[in-house]
């Protein structure tokens, strides 16, 4: 900020302090969850152990026993990784073609793709159940979860990639064409290395969205392909008995993702506003 916008001495101290206080308040629920995960179930609901207690790792050691955590975590991992890979393998060529060889319809196609994201999922809940359960036999399979996660994230991924590709100067491509580089060479040797950062953050964001998804993963699975969202949803009301162990399993479920999120917060804006705010 420019030196002109220096307010009073009061302001230079007050506003940063307010920002810090608010930030800590916002972070508090997460901090509280992590803190509670180190308490025993009994201690977790006692007011006298609110902040001072004997920390224990018991909840983390017993995650498998209490909740079968790893089975759900592995399902989440498998479905999110493969959905991300599949989305990218379909999305990269599409975004590439639209950014570098736009036609009259490119804009309409992009907007239409985005509009599929805006359909309320609940509207097609029963047909999806019907199709996958009665007709295709895909209900509660990893394949189905991967497919659905890919489809719901495909528009966002294409849009993000499109905005990254658009930033690559056309001249570089033209120069490549002059030198007789083939289409594939152009894509593999010129564009993708330049867009590497954008590609990585798109993949990261797609992975996060897949991991956190909580409608289809809950409604289209029962046990075999059930993800962490399903696990947590199934333990929605511990009635105060299991705050400690539930916090541990929640922390394990969101911790890595929150940390990953810190690394792609700048790219998040692009992904979430579809390039409309830069």
């Amino acid at each position: 900020m420019s030196p002109f916008v220096r307010s009073s001495r009061f302001g230079t101290f007050f506003w940063p302090i307010l920002a810090w206080v608010l930030a800590l308040l916002f972070f508090f629920p997460i901090f509280w969850m992590v803190l509670t995960s180190f308490k025993t179930d009994a201690d977790a609901v006692k007011p006298e152990f609110l902040f001072f207690f004997t920390p224990t790792l018991e909840n983390y050691f017993n995650m498998t026993e209490n909740y079968d955590y790893w089975r759900f975590a592995i399902n989440s991992g498998i479905t999110s990784v493969f959905a991300t890979l599949f989305t990218l393998s379909v999305g990269v060529p599409a975004a590439y073609a639209m950014a570098f060889n736009p036609s009259r319809h490119t804009k309409d196609i992009l907007v239409w793709m985005l509009s599929t994201k805006m359909l309320p999922a609940a509207a097609v809940l029963y047909p999806m159940t019907f199709l996958t359960k009665n007709m295709l036999g895909l209900f509660d399979t990893h394949f189905l979860v991967i497919l659905v996660l890919s489809l719901i994230n495909l528009p966002i991924v294409i849009w993000m990639l499109f905005t990254y590709f658009k930033e690559i100067p056309k001249e570089i491509i033209e120069a490549g064409k002059m030198d007789g580089v083939s289409f594939w060479g152009e894509m593999g040797d010129i564009v993708l290395p330049l867009a590497w950062g954008g590609l990585a953050s798109t993949a990261l964001l797609c992975f996060i969205f897949c991991w956190n998804e909580a409608y289809w993963t809950v409604r289209l699975t029962t046990t075999d392909a059930a993800t962490l969202s399903k696990l947590i949803e199934g333990n929605r009301a511990p009635e105060g008995l299991f705050f400690g162990r539930l916090s541990a399993v929640s922390t394990a479920a969101v911790g890595p993702i929150v940390v990953l999120g810190w690394f792609c917060q700048k790219q998040l804006v692009r992904g979430l506003t579809f390039g409309a705010v830069k």
């Binding site: 509670t36 956190n212 969202s229």
Partner: peptide
């Protein structure tokens, strides 16, 4: 970073955390 963190918490955990704890 502190401000942005809640956005990455999965919705199911968000709900269970708030309503219970």
């Amino acid at each position: 970073v502190l401000f942005i963190s809640p956005f990455f918490v999965m919705p199911a955990v968000n709900a269970v955390l708030w309503i219970n704890m």
